[in-house]
Design a protein around this nucleic acid. Structure first.
Lengths: 338, 338
DNA sequence: CGTGCTGATGTTAACGTCAACATGGACGAC
DNA sequence: GTCGTCCATGTTGACGTTAACATCAGCACG
């Protein structure tokens, strides 16, 4: 039996089975109150008997909306993004919406606009944009039909609601922690310059140092990967003045640790290291990594909440939501040598 | 202007603008050949002018299908799953389909059946199941309407097409590598018993040992997390007979490394370690981890290819697809002490 | 015992698209 | 010149659902 021939039973089938009109079936399916209890029971029984499932394509056509939200995402397998996506997905399905994934390979205007358009075709109710690259200037995104949008990013440039981790506070905590341990200053391995998160962390690290009247060492720039942290780490490990490093994420911190080990510099005896993210693995790095924990779960939840509010109420962007971070002290930080 | 009032322009609008019938617009939109070139141009120009986008809800209603495929996934943020999902998503959008995500919190019959039902409502063309738990016996999954399905798993129990990494060969390679280095035997930290992948790897490790006439040490069982590897590692580190360990994934290998470091046993001087997966981080573990690389990307691609074939041709399950693995030798393995 | 109201249920039409059939003009063959 | 054929284009209806309106029975009130 070819699968293509199959269509599920429709309301009309249920109506016939229950001896009522299609409209009454619709009312029951939508939980309307103005249906006699006996009738409702009869309809529900008929639904069960014929195996009725509502057809959301028809619903979408009728109502203009699909009870679904789109997620435009780049770099899905990234630790933070996959975590955030998971949180978004969980929150979305909990609300009875479904989620349409639109991966973009590179976060260019064209790709994002195209993804937007495709989502619009799909009659989504709203869109979450999860692309950390501030090349995406708001002015350039054409949003087709007043579709509600939430951006997960720290940029202040968007008109849309914005949700993100408190990058600045996290970086400040990391830097202060090292200063408090007695280090004269703190080196930094930054994330890629296109990343708003990376930029925020770098600026906050710098501001914290300046606020404490410390020298600001030159920045190494990586691209979030362990390899880039390793390369930056090789340079830092060769400099005996370096006693404390704040890496902009845990993966680069891992690369740094490797470089330090290879150079024979003990951690935290000679050099202290702080990361950012608190990956599952970080507690088992060698040594276990002191880091800034961020709650991707909370970011995802807040993003969905903001989006659903926008959808329900037609409200404009509220104040940006900022999710706090937490310093997790493990074994990779200690006071400087003598 | 309330967003709710907005609907995009429809074929009728384009038709009016271009002075043709709606049907002709439809023909142009679908690239049918029997349209005069001049007319086609006129229609395309009109589409551009009014900003027409096809409404896929209407298409889905008309055609019964949505050009979308659903993905039922548990444990999304897992390294392997997020990688695989990314590959699936990329392959799916490349074919012009879109992808509906259905996360399930726990891989129980009920949850999966529910997700299936929801996807069916959405008129998806096919479903990929990405849930590594073989509690999901095929007999228990009710698949509503002959919907094409592909399962990513090594279980032989399914009737559906199955795609997975060649777990057995990978584990054999890992074990043989350690044996070839001269180790008398190889200890194993296994994944959770509900996982088919874990079971395959364990069996293959055991078979390889037995095939070589070696003693099979007792198995430690973890749950894929670094912490579980750490706990298992503490026991192994205390046993001086242990000179080689194959961990069923890189994260547990990382935990093991930590336990070994804490116990003061040098790697690979006293103990050799092999992982499985080749995470991005593994090259920067200390020491850099010898591991089995698996191509989640290939798994995702093959799964989509199989699914689309099923959809297009109404064919039944072909032979299971097995994706080869590759041993990546780094610095965590060496011959045993003296 | 009519009038007006309430609440359950039925009827109609429309959402946007496209398959199927209908129309009508151009052109070649006899 | 007449017929048949082919091709571009138009018309109609249906996919499944639901808002809006219509109907009708029951019931309270003057």
């Amino acid at each position: 039996m070819p699968a293509s021939a199959r269509r599920g039973p429709s309301m009309a089938d249920v109506a016939r089975e229950a001896g009522v009109s299609g409209q009454t079936v619709s009312r029951v399916a939508n939980g309307k109150t103005n249906v006699d209890d006996a009738t409702r029971e009869r309809v529900l029984a008929a639904m069960r008997r014929v195996g009725y499932r509502p057809n959301s394509a028809a619903r979408a056509l009728r109502n203009g909306k699909f009870r679904s939200i789109g997620v435009i995402i780049s770099a899905l397998p990234t630790f933070g993004n996959s975590r955030t996506l998971d949180a978004i997905a969980a929150a979305v399905v909990a609300e009875g919406f479904s989620i349409i994934l639109m991966p973009v390979t590179r976060p260019t205007q064209g790709e994002v606009t195209g993804a937007f358009g495709k989502l619009n075709e799909q009659s989504v109710d709203g869109v979450v944009i999860l692309i950390e690259q501030h090349q995406l200037d708001q002015s350039e995104i054409e949003l087709p039909h007043g579709l509600p949008v939430v951006v997960i990013d720290s940029s202040a440039r968007y008109d849309y609601p914005v949700v993100d981790t408190d990058q600045a506070d996290g970086a400040a905590q990391a830097t202060r922690h090292l200063l408090d341990l007695g280090h004269r200053t703190v080196w930094h391995i930054a994330g890629p310059p296109q990343s708003y998160a990376a930029e925020r962390r770098r600026k906050s690290w710098q501001a914290t140092l300046e606020g404490a009247g410390r020298e600001v060492p030159p920045v190494s720039t990586g691209d979030w990967t362990p390899e880039s942290g390793y390369r930056a780490g090789q340079r830092l490990a060769a400099d005996p003045a370096v006693t404390a490093v704040f890496a902009a994420n845990d993966q680069m911190a891992l690369g740094l640790l490797r470089a330090l080990h290879e150079a024979g510099r003990s951690v935290p005896g000679e050099v202290s290291v702080v990361g950012f993210d608190d990956m599952d693995e970080s507690a088992c790095f060698w040594p276990p990594l002191t880091t800034i924990r961020q709650s991707f779960e909370a970011v995802g939840r807040h993003a969905v909440a903001a989006l659903l509010a926008e959808i329900a109420a037609d409200v404009e962007a509220g104040a940006p939501v900022t999710v706090p971070t937490e310093l997790v002290v493990r074994a990779s930080t200690a006071p400087p040598p003598e």
